[in-house]
């Protein structure tokens, strides 16, 4: 029981991270109907920006942890969002009316480019960071096994909840969100009604990148080790989360993220660590075959 609870907490933490990345996939898919393969790389860049901001703060001499975390959060979101915006502007916008495979291939190219870009600039070695947020508490103790919850895990869950709440508010109650939803329904019509479609799409990329940046920051703090290749696996898993939740559905992305995090935690906890990634891929294939609309997605009607 205690072991189960511990895996549950670990799974929820991991799931929050996947969920935040998954939102970027699902938002972009909802509006322009493409998979942004470079999104995992955006998350990886977020992790690097977070690491670099932390090191810079150390050099400058900021030692008050809450302040450092706040600055890291803001800087990471800002700089990573710039990458998200640029990727869309350079690699996707010119291809909006090109042939079917063009944006996908362009996205793969972008993904390869960004991986190598970071590798060349920051080195291929794994970067290890000492823990910044210490401590936690013991939730319960039984059979000689104690369930530990760290402050960091609490922080990750709380921040995810806060971001989700804020994000839902933006989508449901602001002109920006209205424009997003309108473009999801019918981009041509939205354009005719005076919505700046280009800007709306850019905004989706910026928001998606900012949320992925937060995920990158969390991973940097939580695991303390990052390298230029982390975007690949995390990207596939977050995409799986988006598909599982129903691609195009924002609550679905969060739900899918949490489920994937839980599955991964329990699989590693009870079966085998080696095959945890295989388990996630198998889920992806099964969902796509048997329920391509996911848990909360809308069925797609083919236009003929």
């Amino acid at each position: 029981m205690a072991y189960f609870l511990q895996q549950l907490i670990n799974g929820l933490t991991l799931g929050s991270i996947y969920g935040l990345i998954a939102i970027g996939y699902t938002m972009v898919y909802g509006i322009i109907g493409m998979i942004n393969f470079a999104h995992g790389e955006i998350y990886m860049i977020g992790a690097f920006v977070a690491l670099i901001t932390f090191l810079v703060l150390g050099v400058v001499g900021v030692s008050y942890v809450p302040l450092a975390l706040l600055v890291m959060l803001l800087a990471t979101m800002l700089f990573t969002a710039a990458y998200g915006w640029t990727v869309e502007r350079l690699a996707y916008r010119p291809l909006r009316h090109s042939f079917r495979l063009a944006p996908l291939i362009s996205a793969i190219g972008m993904s390869i480019f960004l991986q190598n870009y970071v590798q060349l600039l920051q080195g291929a070695r794994v970067k290890a960071l000492p823990p910044i947020v210490h401590g936690g508490f013991t939730l319960m103790q039984s059979d000689g096994f104690s369930v530990e919850v760290s402050w960091l895990q609490i922080g990750i869950l709380a921040l995810t909840l806060a971001l989700m709440a804020g994000f839902s508010l933006v989508i449901s109650a602001t002109p920006l969100g209205r424009a997003q939803r309108a473009c999801e329904q019918d981009m041509t019509m939205a354009a005719l009604l005076g919505i700046d479609v280009d800007r709306t799409i850019s905004t989706a990329f910026v928001i998606g990148a900012a949320l992925a940046a937060v995920a990158g920051l969390m991973v940097t703090l939580y695991y303390g080790v990052i390298d230029f290749f982390i975007g690949f696996l995390a990207g596939i898993k977050a995409f799986t989360a988006a598909v599982l939740g129903g691609i195009g559905s924002l609550p679905g992305a969060m739900l899918g993220g949490l489920l994937i995090g839980l599955i991964e935690a329990f699989w590693s906890g009870y079966f085998s660590v080696e095959y945890k990634d295989v388990a996630v891929f198998v889920i992806l294939v099964l969902v796509l075959i048997f329920r391509p609309t996911g848990l909360l997605g809308r069925p797609e009607v083919e236009k003929v």
Binding site: I112, F113, L120
Partner: peptide, 18 residues
């Protein structure tokens, strides 16, 4: 720089001559 160039070239070719 090989893969960096190839990644960039993939994007450029899709944009310029798909």
């Amino acid at each position: 720089f090989r893969m960096l160039l190839f990644g960039a070239a993939m994007v450029a070719i899709m944009v310029w001559r798909p």
